[in-house]
Design a binder for these strands. Structure first.
Lengths: 359, 359
DNA sequence: CTGAAAGCGCTTACAG
DNA sequence: CTGAAAGCGCTTACAG
């Protein structure tokens, strides 16, 4: 049952119309080598017969699979749903399919995952790189979704600018002593976010940056952050690098008896699924995933088509001089600040001990 | 650059060895029609030459794409990462790829998504159905991931039994007045979870079930649940139907000044990404996704192979009498209770007003 | 504007 | 055990 074509093929249509299958092919693909009348007639017939082109046949002939591969460092990433959804839509709009592969947060597995995709003949690759990974030349165009500061060819949200937005929002609320909280100091994205925040702070803002993961690695717990103490020392806002981290902080503060945002404001990044529904809802910043996906997919398709070898039938392919991963342009897409109730005015009796590192 | 095979093909190997490509094919596929010596020699040569079979060629010839389609009602579903990851692994292990399609929580789009996948020639479909949807015959085997109570052919976690586990856990902690909180009363999964909990409660347990979504639809807010009031009336545990709902309740309670679990216990379902890291961490129940994925993929592959038409070359396919979606068996996989700090002993001074519906 | 022919790479009866 | 041949469905130079 599986497999074995059920519907008609090109020759069936050609037969039914008394024309050649070449003509049917040309008519259907709209390359314009067929008279308008014939095109219309063929299209009509194809519709009536319920013709569905065979991807396999086309793929074998053209050497293109019509499929893009999506590689994720860790599919468990809470942003993955948004990414996958956006990519699938962008691809489908361009008549491409999306094959997935996850790499379990492991460089070796990432290589495997890419290999599996390449073997399946994907025409291009979208990769959200594991931090620190450089994708070598893989034999097909690659678009990376990361940060503009990643060396290579990327489309991404403008994490830096988003950091600035968060920072300005907090400053406008009157916060002067702010704790910046990151998770992984090796992450480009997180560094950009923190960098943007720092850059936007004025001279009179006191801020300190903490990274959670190294602390945890050294056997510490989240408690080692001493949040309560810091707040009593004057911190009135905690700006984290992700909603997950913000949620962690928020619930910890609440458990410790603090009121958010009355006593402390908390911000996140990414607008994850839970962010709008928790109490208080998270002030955060959202990326326009579909825009990013559209750019990435468009860049890929451009390259798939544009860089085609001028003499496709020559047995010796001209050695490409441009690396496969070069995208037309490194694009950065602005993020959108979403103000919700986890941020509020700085408490009035704020005592700026200014014991943090000052910018 | 994209497309156009780069490596050697079967004939190249055949040529290099002075044998026929048929023999190379047979040797490589291990169908056993070739002498052991030759097989070894061919395999070696193929390895040396870096031979990678062309999926397109194979697909065209066999009518099989080697790809499974994964359809999700809403890719935004927080469980999606786990599902996708598990499916991809299970498929990859069996040398299948996974093509994704989301259906934006919309029945029409679900049909479109399935259509797109079918057009791409997937050999089988894994669908997490939108609630209430029945997938018609689509021309390829379908495995549904839902609950055993869904009419049709499903693999799933045993949500009912998981509900029982949660209920027993709460009873063991001494809770006697429990609020059951669902989101969507039309969801089979949620009804199973609630049903399981109710079934496990003993006579002396007072419990009431509330559904959030209908409330919200009627313009109510989460506040309409009157959680504080219910707690003061004796509710000592709130058992929700998902971690997302549990998180919502938890943060709301915390905001209202309640201590969890000292004053109220809260439970969820699914062990979402945030569940272990919030404070208090969520007691929940986890499904073994990879097991579910393995069963689904195995069932699909079985059907793809097993139900093959006995005479593949006959132009007239024998009409199948068995619907395509029948799976070998409806399987249910047990879920695992994960006890964390959001549940604790019932408060001592519990005053069971028993104003709820009693089982 | 239209058609005949070749060929993408593979697998599978079939014959030897 | 091995090979010659056909054919899956498509597209693309090429010739007319």
């Amino acid at each position: 049952m599986a497999g074995k074509r059920t519907g008609p093929n090109l020759s069936k249509i050609a037969e039914a119309l008394g024309v050649s299958s070449a003509t049917v092919s040309n008519a259907l693909s709209g390359k314009g080598r067929v008279s308008a009348d014939l095109v219309k007639k063929i299209r009509k017939k194809a519709g009536e017969m319920g013709y569905v082109p065979s991807r396999a046949g086309r793929a074998l002939r053209t050497g293109r699979s019509g499929v893009l591969g999506l590689v994720l460092p860790d599919i468990g990433n809470p942003l993955f749903p948004q990414i996958a959804q956006a990519m699938e839509r962008a691809a489908a709009t361009n008549d491409y399919g999306v094959l997935i592969a996850d790499s379990r947060d492991d460089v070796t597995t990432q290589t495997d995952a890419i290999g599996r995709l390449i073997e399946r003949g994907v025409d291009g690759l979208i990769v959200i790189p594991r931090r620190g990974t450089r994708i070598g030349t893989v034999g097909c165009p690659v678009a990376m979704i990361d940060t503009p500061s990643t060396p290579g060819n990327t489309v991404s949200a403008d994490h830096w600018q988003a950091g600035e937005q968060i920072a300005r929002h907090l400053m406008e609320l009157g916060h002067k002593n702010i704790l910046l909280l990151g998770n992984d100091p090796a992450s480009n994205v997180q560094n950009d976010r923190i960098g943007g925040m720092k850059a936007a702070f004025k001279r009179d803002i006191s801020c300190q940056t903490l990274w959670l993961q190294p602390l945890l690695r050294k056997g510490g717990t989240a408690a080692s952050l001493n949040l309560s103490e810091r707040i009593s020392q004057g911190v009135s806002a905690i700006a984290t690098v992700s909603d997950l981290l913000a949620l962690r902080v928020l619930t910890e503060l609440q458990t410790a008896g603090f009121q958010v945002p009355t006593q402390v404001s908390v911000t996140g990044f990414d607008d994850l699924i839970f962010s709008p529904v928790i109490s208080p809802a998270l002030t955060t910043v959202r990326m326009n995933m579909s825009q990013i996906a559209n750019i990435a997919v468009a860049a890929l398709i451009d390259e798939i088509n544009g860089n085609r070898d001028p003499k496709p039938k020559t047995s010796l392919q001209k050695k490409r001089t441009v690396p496969d991963t070069v995208m037309a342009d490194t694009s950065r897409v602005p993020m959108e600040l979403i103000i919700r109730s986890s941020t509020g005015p700085a408490p009035f009796d704020q005592t700026p001990h200014s014991n943090g590192e000052t910018l």
